[in-house]
């Protein structure tokens, strides 16, 4: 094909292509095994990307990391417990009680990567931010509820071992519960603590992804609120002990504290949802 001024329009740079889309002179390559050239086959109707697919992928990509963390925690504290039993003359303290600190910080870290690591991939695969945010919220709830269940189960399993050996299972940290057998309170404490921290992590990570280093760092102050609210409302562990001692703070009654915690986490989720819905994907460098 030539244009009105007589210069060729087919094939460039010596590639010898005989095709150009505006003409009919299309010559596929020699490979006769090429699939997919089934012209005229009706195509499926457009559909949304199913939410279940989004959730499944979130579970696959972050579930492995979270699962590995719990395996490490369980194995590590089982070994610590074994060493404690082997070397100590008087076993009387709950070893699992020492495992109560790291989950909330680990899940805070997991929250920070939710937007930066997964939002671009999902949006690039045709998923809306709304669907991502909804499914990530479900994932956060699943992970934090699981944390509460695992912590309660840990105490129960340790209780069986201690009972069989005739050891007391004394708790050293301040909690909502007084004994390792109060599974509902154990679940409540850790589900809420991890929820507040993971939501805070997600909010912090979204702030950094959206605004970059300086404004993202400034945004950390309000982003910490869900975790701070839950910590103040429940007032457990070393943080609660510190606040109560230094500020002469009295935590609210349990039921009210749970309500405040849930409201704090919900407000954090709403804020995250709102931010994610309007966050542009970063340019690739």
């Amino acid at each position: 094909m030539t244009d009105a001024l007589g210069h060729g329009t087919t094939g460039t740079a010596g590639f010898g292509r005989t095709a150009r889309s505006g003409g009919v002179d299309v010559t596929p390559q020699d490979d006769s095994a090429q699939p997919g050239l089934d012209v005229g086959v009706p195509t499926p109707a457009p559909r949304d990307v199913p939410r279940s697919v989004v959730f499944r992928h979130l579970v696959q990509v972050q579930g492995r990391i979270v699962g590995l963390y719990w395996v490490i925690v369980v194995v590590a504290f089982a070994l610590i417990g074994a060493a404690y039993a082997f070397f100590s003359r008087n076993v009387e303290l709950s070893v699992w009680d020492w495992a109560t600190q790291s989950p909330k910080y680990f899940l805070l870290a997991m929250g920070t990567i939710l937007t930066a690591a997964y939002l671009p991939v999902f949006v690039a695969h045709g998923v809306t931010r709304r669907t991502f945010a909804l499914m990530a919220t479900v994932w956060v709830l699943l992970v934090t509820v699981s944390a509460g269940v695992i912590m309660a189960l840990g105490y129960l399993v340790e209780g069986f071992v201690y009972d069989a050996a005739g050891w007391p299972q004394a708790l050293t940290s301040p909690h909502l519960y007084d004994s390792a057998g109060e599974s509902v309170l154990i679940f409540t404490e850790f589900a809420l603590l991890t929820l507040g921290h993971m939501v805070t992590g997600w909010l912090i990570g979204t702030g950094y992804y959206r605004w970059g280093w300086w404004w993202g760092t400034a945004f950390m102050v309000p982003a910490l609120l869900p975790a701070v609210v839950v910590e103040l409302a429940l007032s457990t562990s070393w943080i609660g002990e510190l606040i109560e001692t230094v500020f002469d703070y009295s935590p609210p009654p349990l039921g009210f504290g749970v309500m405040i915690s849930l409201c704090g986490a919900a407000a954090g989720l709403v804020a995250t949802f709102t931010l994610v819905r309007t966050t542009p994907l970063r340019s690739k460098v």
């Binding site: 990509v61 690039a124 809306t128 690739k284």
Partner: peptide, 23 residues
Amino acid sequence: YEHARTASQICLIREGGDIYDQQ
């Protein structure tokens, strides 16, 4: 923007694609 049916029909490939580095 945020139209699920339309978004699922668009594929933008930036250099290297938007994929998980670890996968």
